[in-house]
Design a protein around this nucleic acid. Sequence first.
DNA 1: CGCTGTTATGTTAGCGCTAACATCCTTTTT
DNA 2: AAAAAGGATGTTAGCGCTAACATAACAGCG
Lengths: 341, 341
Amino acid sequence: MSKSSPPRRRRGSARTTLSQVADVAGVSAITVSRALNAPERVNAETRRHILATVERLGYVPNLVAGSLASASSRFIAVIVPSLANAVFIEVIQGLQETFEAEGYQILLGNTDYDLDREAQLVRTFLGWSCSALVTAGLRHSDACRSLLSQWDKPIMEMMELGEALDLNVGLDHSEAGRCMARHLLTRGYRQIVYVAGRMAEDYRAGLRYAGHREILEGEGLAAPLLDLAHLGSLEAGAAALERVLETHPRADAIHFANDDLATGALLHAQRLGLGVPKDIAIAGFNGLPLGQHVTPRLTTIRSPRQHMGQLAAQRLLARLQGDVVSRRQDVGFELLPGDSS
Amino acid sequence: MSKSSPPRRRRGSARTTLSQVADVAGVSAITVSRALNAPERVNAETRRHILATVERLGYVPNLVAGSLASASSRFIAVIVPSLANAVFIEVIQGLQETFEAEGYQILLGNTDYDLDREAQLVRTFLGWSCSALVTAGLRHSDACRSLLSQWDKPIMEMMELGEALDLNVGLDHSEAGRCMARHLLTRGYRQIVYVAGRMAEDYRAGLRYAGHREILEGEGLAAPLLDLAHLGSLEAGAAALERVLETHPRADAIHFANDDLATGALLHAQRLGLGVPKDIAIAGFNGLPLGQHVTPRLTTIRSPRQHMGQLAAQRLLARLQGDVVSRRQDVGFELLPGDSS
DNA sequence: CGCTGTTATGTTAGCGCTAACATCCTTTTT
DNA sequence: AAAAAGGATGTTAGCGCTAACATAACAGCG
């Protein structure tokens, strides 16, 4: 009988723990826990004393332990395809300011437009017992779908509208494409080239192109497409303008998949001495400030990006509190007719 | 003696656990743990069998439990003052791509240029047992300093150089200010106004102003300052131009604290029919693509933002592996003389 | 053939916290 | 005044995983 086992081990960090606080304050651990997490369940006097002790000992709660015990963390997983695009940054800002105010922390993942990476990120994030998950877009790999469908916490799919797993906040991209195509037709353009970047991956640009094409073909017009190797940058827009001039010399307008490309082309046209819209009209999508400050002002479509983030966060917060919320919300968009078309 | 206590409780999520996987695979829990986290310590055959079982059961490791047991998470806390500024986004991208490749997850915090919020974020992040912490800047509140100095994991302070708590990667902002001031003097400007946004908070702009002022005063020139209420945007830059024209009618150059302001002013000058640099010269700081695509091309200073992020991440990774790394690294900057000065 | 070293796996005991239940008062109700 | 209800605090038993130590099996060695 080895009753007298040698004192085996010693682990953990040297940091102050909740029970040390409890000992010093002369209460039980659970009372300290309650004083910090559910103050109203502790007598005001006791609470004051405990909080003073916490302060004095410099106690920093171990959130990992708390999450394990309660089987939930105050993490919100947010998965976006890119950080290079200002659109996602603004959406993230909207999410962040709203969630942070309620004490939630964002766990940010970047897929680089790769659905396998998305699945991998989802796996990791589920492992962190997140309270909810936000993802940009409705398209996922099978692996990702199966992980998500087994999950029992709220899921928000943003940016576009359609068949969602759970909640959905976004706008109708094919309608946006139609809207801009109609605008360009109204202004009299007939040879309109659509320019996108990596459209297979940035498939929302593809949805807009589909809308654009539908309108043009409805008028018996062709809808030529130029799909670039880069997603969107001023650089790529400038290069795209040159390519369009070369391959479609009769083009009278270019409908770009985003404002970065469109503005790059617009600024490059100035350098080339081309008149916009006299020689060639230019239109974009997003409504970034950049396009609104160049001369001529860029014709584009504004999406309520930051608002979309805030709205998505509010929905999720309501859902987390047990409220019933509508599953789908169209945030709409707005045509900003500029002087470039 | 209440030996026959009724079966008390049942908790936790319904998810598959590691020991369930172990039971099914016919091994012990620790062997499954090793197969997943230290594959080389398990026989190849056993490992294959375990991984197949993991796959079959759709087991998703509970990272919260793992972190508690090992007293460390693969989180890297990253604290920046703003997401609205492209500079920080690019630094974050650099950090992210490097850390993600090594299986670390970034925990992003945004202080909104508020040092108290920074301290609060640090508290939270310490509670998550992060492996390292990255923060933009060397200035912290006392509370924040005391939290950080008691911490035993690597800390990286980025963006600027100086007395750091631990590791430090950045550039010399006052030298950058001097560099641009010298450039403007060389080009013959003498009435140079410095325009910043919320300089008390964006104190690195203040460091650049100090350098700028030092050079001008060395030449016996005044160094008037205009400090805006907004940090930096095309909008604010345009407004700033008007204010400078009004309050300093004899100014021949404006040295802006960042490219957003500078580009906004430059584009606005075009709208006003002002010649740049004939009527007024304009210079910025950062070297954002935006300023390099307008006509005239913006004179600015390029900081290696993404590279700074990568470098910081590499240093931290090396440190986490136990390597000794130099504490300070100057990433330098580069004057990009454009046509706006 | 016992000794040491190596490889593969298992046993035990927590990591620091909180859910669930229990207890003990004080107040309110009838 | 006894019973019921509520408020404040405590006890117990894990959450799911991994560090530390333990064990077993086998190879190499003089």
